[in-house]
Design a protein around this nucleic acid. Structure first.
Length: 675
RNA sequence: GCCCGGGUAGCUCAGCCGGUAGAGCAGCGCACUCGUAAUGCGCAGGUCAGGAGUUCGAGUCUCCUCCCGGGCUCCA
């Protein structure tokens, strides 16, 4: 028999050959790295027999596909270990995920895992790995499967779901089986399982590595609660997360990446660099900004203001609280009440709410007088503070807070203007984000949330189409987020990738046909008739707080010169250089730079070190040798050593230019283009 | 909101089986006067998150509340 390899060449094999024999025939190193095979487009076990003329690709452990296989297999081993250590435990699902895997369990007597258990489980897992147990595939009918897992209710539920989805005739199952569960069991009326020993068998579609000794570079990372099938109304299970890699080095590299990401954590840097804090007296999710953080915010906001003026926005302002009527009209109290702080009862039963959004206020500005088509589009902008009652478990640093300031704009335009306006907003948004140093993006299109939407399907259709075509013009990948829109309209969000490859949802642009109608907005058209405008909601940073946090992590706290709270620190070598240092300081300040100094009370090395730890862009050292020639010693952030005898004038010219504003990045790259 | 783990000096953390609080860094003072990532000595600093309970005695054990972290759910 022959098989066809990925490069189109053919290979003769003895009949009965498997992926494993093919890999061995192709090379010993390949065989050592092989974890599965792709046969005619389907991922299968290496032990699966190959058919004549099959197209075969060997999947190795050092690819994302291969890692997914070995992570899934490692999850099985973990389940085997847990079931051995906790007799009577029930196990649910255990997929591979980005960088690792998890498995969900229910322990006998409602017991819970603790962090200390992880070591015991890992030790048991290593025994299983050392045992080199084969992963043997079995196929069963639905009824055999139900019998095989008679003591495992979660497995039975999965089997029933698969069976009913494929019409195999088990009554009472859900009509629809989700892909996650299907991945656990297989499909098409039969269920597959993998057996490692007489006593351990797990429902699974596979594929798996040939045997447990192909695993071993793993670490269990944390325990957590997780709802069965992701439904908070159902049983809460105990989840264990782990990571697994193809080699000890890959595992170590991954752990190092985690440690590096931890060093960039904005919550940690926020305290270290004295930027902001969350005093517990104020309450969860409510930040105060310290002078340095406050200054960075100011700089961020000022630059955005300038750009908005240039882009034709009008600046408006609105209060933080309002009578309930406003949010009754807007629909927030009907659709979003659980995200709002409870009302304050004032005189005569009047209820006031903290605002969770700015849009109704901007609508009232629009409605304050009659509008003509000649004015449109009208673009109202505000740094508007909003308050949202986020559930206690979700607040997180500056990225998920209960009080925040949105850089919020609402654009009122005609239907005819909608497309052009969306394109111009998206272009503006991306351009501005690039100025803050982010340069890799993709777009996400969120569509109508079933059952949680107001307005006609036709309007949703039109709005979604307009967003889609604007998005497609941006030369960026556009991914679909089915049902992820707001209750009043679809949106496009801009996802930005930071310096270490994580993505953050930043800007959102939403089309809204509903609110203008609810508030009875209108303009007089050229035809002398009254028309309802369309509104576009647009936040660019998302929230100032969140964007601030993202920038702290992106730059690891080392803000570019134009955003750095202190740009230059001047250090006199000895205290008899302090007069000259003061002169240098004054001159820098006259040039408009943000500067400070530290007198010579401590050794120079100590002061330089402190400046480095504060991630200052420049540290100047001035001593006796600098006075005559009016020079400085320049210590550049991130640079090696120092440059001596630099003329103060040329240093000032250089830094002033750098501090003037964002560096334009002509080579800003887009994430690969895709529809 | 749910599950798990936490909260000890400004920060990072130690504090055993319940016997009355400790280090390093930071801060302040003094000395040192120094050319590029930690000078020395000294001093001060605590309602052990808050409250209640058990106990002769609670940082330590129990309960409640607040806050933080990791997840789940949620994110208009």
């Amino acid at each position: 028999m022959t098989v066809v390899l990925p490069d189109g060449s053919e290979r003769s094999l003895q009949s009965g050959a498997t992926g494993m024999t093919l890999a061995a025939a192709l090379g010993r190193r390949l065989a050592a790295k092989a974890v599965a095979a792709e046969v005619d487009g389907e991922l299968v076990d290496l032990g699966r027999r190959l058919e004549d003329r099959a197209k075969v690709r060997i999947v190795t452990a050092d690819t994302e596909e291969g890692r997914a296989v070995l992570r899934h297999s490692t999850a099985h081993v973990m389940a085997q270990a847990v079931l051995a250590l906790w007799p009577g435990a029930k196990f649910a699902i255990g997929p591979s995920i980005r960088d690792g895997f998890y498995y969900d369990f229910e322990l006998p007597g409602g017991a819970h895992f603790s962090e200390e258990d992880l070591g015991r489980i890992e030790a048991k897992m290593r025994e299983i790995v050392a045992d080199a147990q084969p992963f043997l595939r079995e196929e069963h009918s639905v009824s055999e499967g139900l019998e095989l897992f008679r003591d495992q209710p979660y497995k039975r539920e999965i089997i029933e779901g698969v069976a009913s989805a494929s019409g195999a005739g088990v009554a009472g199952g859900a009509a629809k089986v989700d892909a996650e569960l299907e991945g656990e069991a297989g499909s098409g009326g039969a269920v597959s399982a993998y057996r490692n020993t007489e006593s351990f068998v797990d429902l699974c579609r596979g594929p798996h590595v040939p045997a447990t000794d192909r695993l071993g570079h793993f670490k269990l990372t944390r325990v957590a609660g997780a709802y069965w099938r992701g439904d908070e109304k159902r049983q809460q299970l105990q989840r264990i997360y782990g990571t697994a890699w193809e080699s000890e080095k890959a595992l170590a590299d991954h752990l190092q990446r985690l440690a590096d990401a931890e060093k960039r954590d904005h919550r940690k840097l926020g305290a270290e660099l004295d930027l902001f804090s969350f005093p517990s007296e104020i309450g969860s999710g409510l930040a105060v900004f310290h002078p340095k953080g406050g200054l960075v915010r100011l700089l961020m906001e000022d630059y955005a203001r300038k750009r908005h003026i240039k882009a034709g926005y009008d600046f408006v302002n609105s209060p933080h609280i309002t009578k309930s009527e406003l949010f009754e009209t807007s629909g927030h109290l009907e659709w979003f009440a659980e995200g709002m702080f409870p009302p304050m009862e004032l005189d005569e039963g009047q209820r006031y709410y903290l605002k969770p959004m700015n849009c109704p206020f901007h609508i009232l500005v629009y409605r304050s007088r009659q509008r003509s088509y000649r004015e449109l589009p009208l673009r109202f902008f505000e740094f508007g503070s909003v308050y949202r009652y986020e559930k206690s478990g979700v607040v997180h640093g500056l990225t998920r807070v209960r009080g925040m300031t949105q850089d919020d704009a609402h654009i009122f335009c005609t239907r005819e203007q909608l497309s052009a306006e969306l394109i111009s907003i998206l272009t503006f948004v991306l351009d501005l984000l690039r100025d803050y140093g982010l340069d890799e993006f993709y777009l996400e299109l969120s569509t109508r949330p079933e059952g949680k939407a107001i307005g006609s399907p036709e309007d949703w259709e039109e709005a979604t189409a307009a967003l889609r075509s604007a998005g497609e013009l941006m030369d960026l990948a556009l991914v679909l987020d089915e049902g992820g829109g707001a209750f009043y309209g679809p949106k496009i969000s801009v996802q930005a990738r930071d310096a270490i490859g994580r993505t953050w949802q930043l800007s959102t642009i939403q089309v809204d046909f509903q609110e203008p109608q609810r508030f009875g907005l209108e303009y007089v058209g050229a035809d002398n008739q009254r028309h309802v405008p369309i509104m576009i909601h647009r936040a660019l940073f998302g929230s100032v707080e969140r964007f601030f946090g993202v920038l702290v992590e992106h730059y690891a706290g080392a803000f570019p010169t134009w955003l750095a709270p202190v740009q230059v620190r001047v250090l006199p070598v000895r205290d008899d250089n302090e007069d000259y240092a003061a002169e240098v300081l004054a001159e820098l300040r006259r040039a408009g730079l943000r500067v400070d100094t530290e007198s010579a009370g401590e050794p120079l090395g100590t002061r330089v070190r402190r400046g480095k730890l504060e991630k200052l862009p420049y540290i100047l050292v001035v001593g006796a040798e600098d006075v005559a020639g009016r020079t400085v010693g320049v210590n550049v952030r991130g640079g090696e050593g120092a440059q001596r005898g630099v003329s103060l004038q040329s240093f000032i010219e250089m830094v002033v230019e750098e501090a003037a504003g964002p560096a334009r990045r002509p080579n800003a790259s887009a994430v690969g283009r895709r529809a």
